[in-house]
Design a protein around this nucleic acid. Structure first.
Lengths: 253, 253
DNA sequence: CGCATGATTGAAGTATATCAATAGTGGTGG
DNA sequence: CCACCACTATTGATATACTTCAATCATGCG
């Protein structure tokens, strides 16, 4: 099944009004830049209007034009096999970059879909590349982001190859917790913007397995789930269940 | 189990004799550079003596100092879980880069082990970064490599999450075939430098499963295996088995 | 408010892991 | 050079974690 061409999910360019871009870089991007460099970068990036759930940032196979940073909301990226199966490759939250794997290609190798009302910053890649030739620190920041993503994908390979279903779900919840915490939100109470189906797909599990493990974890007082709302009740035990910590070795040796 | 410190697997710096570095970049690196840029890069890279099978380029947890390009031979990279399980994250052949996921970290997040007698080019990262601030094309080439690696890992996630054992093995063989072909070697006849165990580990399968599928493929006349020597007898059918092609749609539509 | 979609729970099935036993390989040193 | 020994690979029998199928229950969007 061929990849469908992009519908009018997004306006071609979000806005020609570059009015209030000030601070956008520090708000959206995981870049550490001198303020004058940030100002220059702000001139080439555009903030999207709120994107509706279900829309696409880009489709697999479409020409690569830009990378994105999430400003608010969440996004999933996924590849589609020739057999038509979908594999989610990542979930992205505010301050995280999307589309890095498309760099150096003509077409996006993945699709990016909006999970809830979301705003993003669009960074047209040719402008970015031109600018970064004058500002080496820009490229350096991009390289850092890519390195981080590489490490995350390696951890994901490990999860998919070696971890049990329980370990996968625990790892997933803890990873989300960490990311929310880093953003200043609660590390123990949050809302899952993705469906059970999407969690299962991402973790290489059937929906039913995810559901069962949520129930089991709840029974074990590890978590409290109610629909999309999740509370992590016992982070330490979750860490053990995830395979990241062990009973016999303390977290800080 | 903590990660062991590096033994004397490699000499600290391979050689202080920078005698015959000429052409090293074009020989080892997947970089496309102007000749004067390449010459500058050559000044900071060092070729290793032949490394013996079983040695390490670096261990997980050691300070990150350099990235590497394979010149001859092959390397595997792997992560170790807290439970002590090993997950191979990649196999690397001549012209491929190792250690990119360590960029932006203090310590290597993976280990790199020599699979057969191998020579590599060591690129000390601080020198590389300094040089690349003057030569923006250097950073651009690095970004391209990282993008490629990201895409490969995404494909690997798909494989680990969605493909059957047969699809995984077929995909693996075809991927190797492609890489050898690109290097000018035979696409259908080659030697596996890794063990069945390592193949299984990489593909998320038990050794026995890999062995059984090799036998099955042989019985089906898809391949001819004799120890580490493999011949791909029916590339088209292998592509179908791998899930990359389908019976009802031709390769060139 | 109703109906499509998503979530949960139970029962049965299966692909692959694990266990086990044998056969082959390759490297080393006598 | 060959013989030994440890390691690697193969093949078969059994076990199991997870999937698939099925039915019910909840949810939320129009």
């Amino acid at each position: 099944m061929a990849v469908k061409p992009s519908t009018q999910d997004k306006s071609r360019t979000f806005s020609d009004v570059q009015s209030q871009n000030s601070g956008l870089v520090s708000l959206c991007l995981p870049f550490t830049l001198e303020s004058q460099d940030a100002a220059q970068l702000e001139r080439i990036i555009e903030q999207s209007p709120p994107l509706k759930k279900g829309g696409h940032l880009f489709h697999q196979g479409e020409p690569f034009t830009a990378i994105y940073a999430v400003r608010a909301g969440s996004i999933k990226t996924y590849t589609v096999t020739n057999a038509g199966e979908e594999q989610i490759t990542g979930f992205y939250f505010p301050g995280e970059m999307i589309g890095l794997s498309a760099i150096d290609t003509d077409d996006y190798p993945i699709s990016a879909k909006v999970l809830e009302t979301t705003t993003v910053c669009e960074i047209p890649y040719d402008s970015f590349e031109q600018l970064s030739n004058r500002l080496p620190s820009l490229k350096a920041e991009l390289i850092k982001c890519m390195g981080k993503e590489l490490r995350e994908e390696q951890q994901m390979m490990l999860l998919l190859s070696k971890k049990t279903a329980e370990e996968r779900v625990a790892t997933f919840l803890l990873k989300l917790s960490d990311r929310f915490k880093r953003r200043g939100y609660s590390a123990s109470l949050f809302r899952l913007s993705m469906s059970r189906n999407e969690i299962g797909n991402y973790l290489g599990l059937a929906v039913e397995t995810v559901s069962r493990i949520f129930s089991r974890f709840q029974k074990q007082q590890l978590i409290q789930v109610e629909g999309k709302e999740v509370e992590l009740l016992d982070l330490d035990e979750l860490r053990i269940v995830s395979g990241e910590a062990r009973h016999d070795e303390p977290l800080i040796p």
